[in-house]
């Protein structure tokens, strides 16, 4: 059953006189009770996709296509309708909690504000709910009167999780929830998110560049490169049988696999190469790759690849 369906999503914006095609015809489906990992390098447009789903992009960004949440196209919603969907049905954990939390409000205030605004709760009731949320993410509710600077990085991330989950959303988007954390803290945060998502029957879109984290958490993985999804498959298939040359290179570059290098740089989103966007760095290049742009095609059940080497592309 699909919970969120993205069809032909395009996100363009202008920067320094150039059109940046941050997302170029993205097709993605998030199923009920599923953890979907979105992995890709810095600047491939994965955070922008996350923000586009929750409607957190600035006004001058052009968005095309469809994002359907439970049979409702949220791109066509009014500001008000969107506000209701955001938070209540789709929660987001932003990256960099130090910047996302307001330094002059106590964390209790910041969480209870969500209840008071979205559910018109009274002060007392909101505070009780806040205490429950904090307990759930492993923070002593007594600390709700403290301010963000009194919390460590991992604790702040827990606060962010509590805020993302406050309204029991059906879908949670976590944007690099483990960035900048120590290995031990990282593991704890991963466990916490997994546990909560499974207990509450939610779906999770995990945006990360850390393949190790994705491996531990996800059911399926979508790999993004230069604003496009180039491969979607189950975690098992991705790890054991990666198909797209980029995915293969990415996995081979991990320390465990010997840090094998791939030459070249990721292309800029304002002037991607013609044809397949990976062709300048690809090991398995064929003639077609230079001129024709491959489509995302299903090669076997549950696996789709954007590459001419597979299927009838």
């Amino acid at each position: 059953m699909s919970l969120l369906k993205i069809q032909d999503l395009k996100v363009y914006f202008n920067a320094r006189g150039k059109t940046v095609k941050a997302n170029n015809s993205i097709d993605l489906e998030i199923r009920e009770n599923e953890i979907l990992g979105l992995i890709g390098e810095t600047g491939c447009g994965k955070s922008i996709l996350g923000r586009a789903i929750v409607g957190l992009l600035p006004d001058n960004v052009k968005i095309g296509g469809k994002i359907v949440y439970r049979s409702e196209d949220i791109l066509n919603l009014s500001e008000n309708g969107l506000r209701k969907i955001r938070g209540k049905n789709i929660g987001i954990i932003l990256q960099n909690p130090s910047a996302a939390l307001n330094p002059v409000l106590s964390i209790g205030n910041q969480i209870s504000e969500i209840y008071r605004y979205h559910e018109n709760m009274g002060k007392k009731e909101a505070r009780i709910r806040t205490a429950k949320m904090l307990e759930m993410v492993g923070i002593d509710p007594k600390r709700m009167h403290e301010y963000p600077h009194q919390f460590s990085g991992g604790m702040k991330q827990r606060v962010m999780i509590a805020m993302g989950l406050a309204l029991n959303p059906g879908l949670l988007i976590a944007d690099e929830p483990t960035k900048g954390l120590d290995p031990t803290t990282k593991d704890k945060i991963i466990d916490l998110i997994c546990e909560l998502v499974i207990n509450k029957n939610m779906s999770l879109l995990l945006i990360t560049h850390d393949i190790g984290v994705a491996e531990k958490m996800c059911d399926r993985i979508a790999v993004m490169y230069a604003g496009e999804i180039i491969e979607i498959a189950t975690i098992k298939n991705i790890l054991s049988n990666p198909q797209h040359p980029y995915t293969q290179d990415l996995l081979n570059s991990l320390p465990k696999k010997g840090l094998n290098q791939t030459a070249g740089e990721s292309p800029s989103l304002s002037s991607p190469p013609a044809g397949c966007r990976f062709h300048p760095r690809c090991r398995c290049i064929i003639g077609k790759c230079l001129k024709t742009h491959p489509q995302l095609m299903e090669t076997e059940k549950g696996t789709s690849v954007r590459c001419f080497l597979y299927g009838n592309n």
């Binding site: 390098e41 810095t42 560049h209 990415l250 290098q261 791939t262 990721s266």
Partner: peptide, 11 residues
């Protein structure tokens, strides 16, 4: 750095 870049720099 991203994994691919990390591999390049360390090599």
């Amino acid at each position: 750095l991203d994994p691919l870049v990390q591999a390049q720099i360390l090599n």
